[in-house]
Structures are given as C-alpha cells and as structure tokens.
C-alpha cells in the first residue's frame, strides 16, 4: 500500500471509514495517544499555568488543556464531535493559513499532518507545496505567543522533505529543528519537528533530545544513507546489471518488430551488431 497522502487529498482520504478507526480501533487510538503525549512533553509547557493550545488536525485529544482544533476532513470533525471533546473545532485547510489574532495561543501540536501539505492538488500557484507551507508557517508563527513552541509529529518520505519543511519554517521566523525518537527502530521511529517562537518557552533554546540513545546528527532519514551508499558503489565501477546487447538479441528484436508490422526495420546483414572498435 502506498503512503496515504499519495492516494487522495486528506478531506477525501479521511472519509468515514478511515475516521472511524479513530474511535473504534484501540491500537490506532493508543498510537495517537502516545504521540500526543510525547508531543505535549516536547511542548514543555509550564506546569502550573493553564495553557490555550491549537491542535492542527484533530486526531488527538488533549485532556486538561483548553484548546481549539482545526481539520480539513469533515469526517474527522464528526468523530471529534462524537467524542464530545471540550474544545472548539474548525473546518480549515491549514495550507490556506490561519486567521487567528497575533499571540493567541500558548502552543500548537499536530500529529501526522505535515506530510499532507507536500502534495499539490491543483496546478494553481497557491496549491504548490512551498506556497502552502509558507502560508501555514507564517500565519502560525504570528498566532503563537512569544515565547512558545509548536510540535509536529509527521512522516517524511525523504530527507528532501525534511529540508523543505525546516527551511520554510525558518524563513517564517521559527527556531528549532527535528527530533527523532528511536532512530534505529523501523516501527517505533518517530519524527518530531520542534519549533520555537522567540526563546522557545521554558527558558531554553536547545532542541530536546530524541528518545533512545543518539539523535540522528543531520536529521537524515536512515534509508537515505543506504541509498547513497549504493549509489557510490555504482559510480566506483561495479555496475550491478548492465544489459549485454549482442547480435542474437538484435536479430530477435528486429524479427519481433517485423512480425508486429513495424515499417523501416533495417535489413539484416553481416554488419548487424558487429563488434566496434574500443572507444579509447
């Protein structure tokens, strides 16, 4: 199965069946809850102060906070309504930007949403991923209080995507970077984009550490490294499979084309597929 964001736009992909998983499927709920919990931990809110949060993509359910949620999928909003969550909900395309007044929120979290911004649905200039990301990050930056944090869990499919997202976030004025939890595990591995407005809250500008041992230094996805290694091997001369084009193969192909009725297939001669001089 290919990645969800390549199958359909979010408001269609998260139809009734997918949205139902968020109420019926306990495993799904557990994963969502764990990631929400971890995101809140990374948000590093002051413990004694009640906070007003923005939840981007209402897959999550924060207990004990006063919050506002946005989602583009009506079915997901219905699910949120069914669960009788406490916060306000908006039907909104985050790629179109927010209209919240400056400094409205004490923090923002989002669970597996950012990757949805990386696909263009139409050819209109406002539909291009960089434009949508830019609009999203600039309006979000202004909607957050200074200092505060925004934490996004997302599923990047390549290093380039991380690059694109972080560079646009930086242009919008955010500090911070990528935190990778369990970088060595295929299943438990989770990527969090941890962005700071101003000082970042909690008096520290430092990016929090990923769980389980070392952080990936350059924020690269593991399999990207392997692919690079393979590529290097190829360049060093050991090509794995070069097609051997010999006389028999050429004759067979030409015969095939003649059978199919293709015109202007050259006739066979003693020169067909002859060995050529080495080029150097």
């Amino acid at each position: 199965m290919s990645r969800p964001e390549l199958q359909a736009p979010p408001e269609i992909y998260y139809g009734d069946t997918e949205a139902k998983k968020y109420t019926k499927n306990t495993r799904n709920q557990q994963i969502q809850a764990d990631m929400t919990y971890r995101a809140l931990e990374l948000l590093n809110l002051p413990p004694d102060q009640p906070a007003f949060l923005l939840d981007i993509g209402c897959g999550s359910d924060e207990e004990g906070y006063i919050w506002t949620g946005v989602d583009i999928a009506p079915s997901m909003l219905e699910v949120a309504l069914e669960r009788e969550v406490e916060g306000d909900l908006f039907l909104q395309d985050i790629g179109q930007g927010f209209g919240f007044r400056p400094g409205s929120f004490d923090g923002a979290i989002s669970i597996s949403v950012l990757q949805w911004l990386l696909n263009a649905e139409t050819s209109h200039p406002t539909s291009s991923p960089p434009h949508r990301l830019h609009r999203f990050f600039t309006t979000l930056h202004s909607a957050l209080r200074n200092p505060s944090r925004a934490v996004f869990q997302f599923y990047p499919s390549s290093d380039d995507q991380i690059q694109l997202i972080t560079s646009i976030a930086q242009k919008a004025g955010f500090g911070g970077g990528v935190v990778v939890d369990y970088p060595n595990s295929n299943k438990a591995r989770k990527v969090f984009l941890c962005l700071f407005v101003g000082g970042g809250g909690g008096g520290q500008q430092q990016i929090p550490e990923g769980l389980d041992g070392e952080m990936v230094e350059d924020g690269k996805v593991r399999f990207e490294k392997r692919r690079e290694r393979d590529l290097r091997k190829d360049k060093s001369g050991k090509r794995k499979s070069q097609k051997v084009v010999d006389r028999d193969w050429i004759l067979r192909k030409k015969e095939l084309y003649r059978k199919r009725g293709k015109e202007s297939v050259p006739r066979d001669s003693k020169f067909t597929g002859r060995k050529r001089k080495p080029t150097f």
Partner: peptide
C-alpha cells in the same frame, strides 16, 4: 453543527 467552515476559494488564498 457548531463547526465553522473556514475554507477559502482558490482566488481568496493569500
């Protein structure tokens, strides 16, 4: 249903 529709048409997107 208590949910405001904040979606914009293509020509209204900033």
């Amino acid at each position: 249903n208590g949910i405001p529709n904040m979606l914009l048409a293509e020509h209204e997107i900033g």
